[in-house]
Amino acid sequence: MMLEVEGLTRPGLNPAFLHLAAGECVAVSGPSGAGKTLLLRAIADLDPNEGRVSLDGALRESFSGPAWRCQVTYMAAEPGWWAETVAQHFRHWPGLSGMASRLGLQAEVGAAPVARLSTGERQRLALLRALEGEPKVLLLDEPTAALDAVACHGVEALLSQALGNGVAILLVSHDRAQADRLAGRHLLVEAGCVREEGA
């Protein structure tokens, strides 16, 4: 297994068990406030939590915090920006023009101030930013919530390609059809409890 999570717990989350194989997508759904974001943040080690989490058999504690998050990258529903222009948020923006255009983003967007972009553009850029680091596991919190159908299709195509390259994805999505298209298994989060759908 690529990512194994055993008894992961934190305030607001009962001990959770889940696993992801390389190239596998698992969808996470559940009502708002049930703990989906808490689960993803705990796996990324962004908040204090307890439990056994490992990547390719190596325990999370054997990585530094940043090294773990390089490999297991969380993308928030409302991504943050720390510099003025788009390109400043990437290691090498010109190298991403191919992927950007597949998401309907022109290369010129790189010079644009972040403040002038739409919510949907920011969400797609945040996904590109996460993919640029070439993580092994992606934890995506509603990555298409602000997107129209065309842009949504572009994102799904890019995610399918990442899955084909062996990236494992934990996908929080309210869109059942999207979850069915991308994911083989479904997890349900309700009142802080994580369980496999149908189990």
Binding site: P66, R69, C70, A76
Partner: peptide
Amino acid sequence: DQRVAIEARLALGVAAGEAVLP
């Protein structure tokens, strides 16, 4: 004020010292 921006960088694997520099 910069919590979301700082956490975005942390999530990408940036070290805390760099994320808090601004």
